[in-house]
Structure formats: C-alpha cells, structure tokens
Amino acid sequence: MDRPSDAPRPAARREDIPGWFFRLDQEAFRHLLTTQSTAGTTGDVLELGSYLGRSAVLLGDHLRPGERLTVCDLFDSAAGDDDNAAEMTMSYRASLTRSGFEANYLAFHPELPTIVQAPTSVLADGRIPAGSCRFVHIDASHLYEHVAGDIEVARRALTEDGLVVLDDYRSEHTPGVSAAVWQAVFTGGLRPVLLTPMKFYGTWGDPEPVRRELLARDWRAEGFTVDEDTIAGRRVLRLNNAVPSAAPRSGPRQLLLDLLPPVATRAVRRALGTLRAVRG
C-alpha cells in the first residue's frame, strides 16, 4: 500500500529523528536497561513526554517478552491549561504530531507501544499498575506542578529498585523541573544515582548496585568522563562528554591571529570553523 502523500515521512536513521536525546544519555539508557535485563529485573517501561520518538525507539529496543512500553504525550491535542498550552506553543506545537511519532517508531519496530494521548496527569488514575515498571523516563511539561505530579506517578509505577530519569533538571529555562526534582530528593525519598548535563537518574530503592554497575564500565575509553560527588551525604555519579584537548596552533597562524585586529580575527576564526565543519 502506498503511503498517503500527506503522511509523515519516517526517519531513515535513528539519529534523524528530531529531538534532544543525545549520545551520552543514549549510552546511559542502554547500559542501565541492559543491566536490568542481565540481572533478571522484569517490568514494563513508561515514558511521559515522547515528542517524535527518539528516546521511545531506544526504549522499545530493550523490551523483553511480556513487557510493555507505554508512552503518554499530548501530541497534537489541546493542552489542559493555559500555562501548558503556552509552553507547548513556544517550544514544539508546530512540529509535534502523533502521526509523526508513530511513523518514526514503526520505522524501527513492528508494533506501536501503548499510546496515551492526554496530559500526563491522567496517569494518576491508576491505569499504570503500582509496582509494574522497571524504568520510567519523564520528559513532558517543564512546569513545577506537572513535574511533581509526574514524579509521583513514577514513584507509584516503579518496582522497588526501578529507575526514574528526568530530563532538563538543570537547564536555566526549566526551573520548575529543578524544583520538583530536588524536592523529591530532600523530602520524598528519591535517591540520586547518576547526573548528566541533561538528565537526572534516581531510584526510591537501593542506589548502590546501580552505581557499581555504572562504575564497572570503562566510560573513559569511550570518550566520556565519570566522577563522584556527594549531595547532603548521598553519593552520586556524574557522567559527561570528555573535552578534547585543543590542538596546538602552528606558529605562523597564531602569529597572524595575534597581529590582526579583533574584527578580522573573529572573521578568520569563523572561516576556519566553517572549513573544519565542511571537512567533517
């Protein structure tokens, strides 16, 4: 059957799916989900806020027989309140459609996940059985009230040692997420496991086995850095991209940059940067 002319064109490659789910967190997701499976941990997977499917496709890779992936997103339906509607309009209303998500997901998996097209707050009605999930990814609204509610949904849905991942916990434009995450840590029993520049990983169970599994991997050999910190006496790992050391400049080129006026120097730097990008 031919694809209708107005149907969304699915991504040819996973990296072509629009979104903000980058390699660092992709590797963290793969590692943690694989570790759960290896350890015999069973349970469903839940995603609150899926955009066009970049992270959902990866989550679907790790489902085992009998496990279910549920995604909840407004997609192209109306938001339930003015603040949420304003956020969606500002961020992604023009590009976010359920048909786009479905096309991308089906490009890499034979069947769609269970889709709940509604505000994530509807999941508070108990439709996700308590203790049924081993992994929950939260990347929906950035408003404090919504994120706090999503965290509570995750807490009820997760198994004893299940993992919750929250996006944008430290971005300057999402203070509501930060407030909800750290409130859950200091008053709600959520224990941090891993921090990346974009995401917070935690559990309401014992974080030590997860930390040990993370430290058993040689992240540095793969171009990442891993460090350990404490937050109010609680240990947490930090994973980041390694910063490549700057290549020493040749003497004549550095001399030229030093002698040129600032405006010309900036122009030369931009030209060199463009040339490097073209060469790949």
Rank of each mutant, 00 (worst) to 15 (best):
A184C: 05
H146Q: 08
D61M: 06
Q183K: 09
G66D: 07
V210D: 03
D161R: 08
L59C: 14
A130Q: 11
F29M: 05
P207F: 08
T265P: 07
L158E: 09
Y51S: 08
F224V: 09
L112H: 04
R235E: 04
H173A: 02
V236T: 01
P113F: 01
W219N: 04
A118N: 12
H146A: 15
E172L: 05
P207A: 09
A157R: 01
W204L: 02
P244N: 03
R217G: 01
A232C: 13
L123P: 03
S37W: 03
W20S: 15
P262S: 15
V278G: 06
E27H: 15
P244A: 12
V226M: 15
A107L: 13
A247I: 00
P4Y: 14
G162K: 04
R68H: 10
N84G: 03
T203V: 02
P119M: 02
A103Q: 04
Y169K: 07
G233A: 05
P18V: 12
V57L: 07
V164S: 01
L59A: 10
A118F: 01
G223V: 04
G131R: 01
G60C: 06
N84D: 06
A39T: 11
L194W: 03
Q254H: 09
L24I: 10
L46N: 05
W182I: 03
R30F: 08
D161Q: 06
D2K: 12
I128T: 10
G189W: 14
L24C: 07
L48Y: 02
R93C: 00
A264H: 04
I231K: 04
T196M: 08
G223D: 11
P4N: 07
R30W: 02
S55Y: 15
G19V: 07
S178G: 01
P248V: 08
I151V: 14
D167N: 14
S50Q: 08
C72K: 02
G251F: 14
R191I: 03
F29V: 10
P244H: 06
V236P: 00
A232Y: 05
D61S: 11
D82C: 03
I231L: 15
R234W: 00
Q254S: 12
V181Y: 05
A86K: 12
P4L: 10
D44S: 15
E27V: 10
E172R: 15
D25F: 01
G40Y: 14
L237S: 02
V243A: 06
G149Y: 04
G176W: 00
R170Y: 00
R212N: 08
I138Y: 12
L190T: 02
H137N: 15
T38K: 13
R238V: 15
L239I: 07
A247C: 06
D44E: 05
P175H: 01
V185W: 12
Q254I: 03
A28T: 12
R98K: 15
V57Q: 09
G126Q: 09
T41C: 08
E47R: 13
M90A: 06
L112D: 04
L158D: 10
G66L: 13
A79Y: 05
D227R: 11
E15Q: 06
E67S: 08
A85Y: 04
L74W: 08
L239R: 00
P8R: 10
S121T: 12
F22Y: 11
L272H: 12
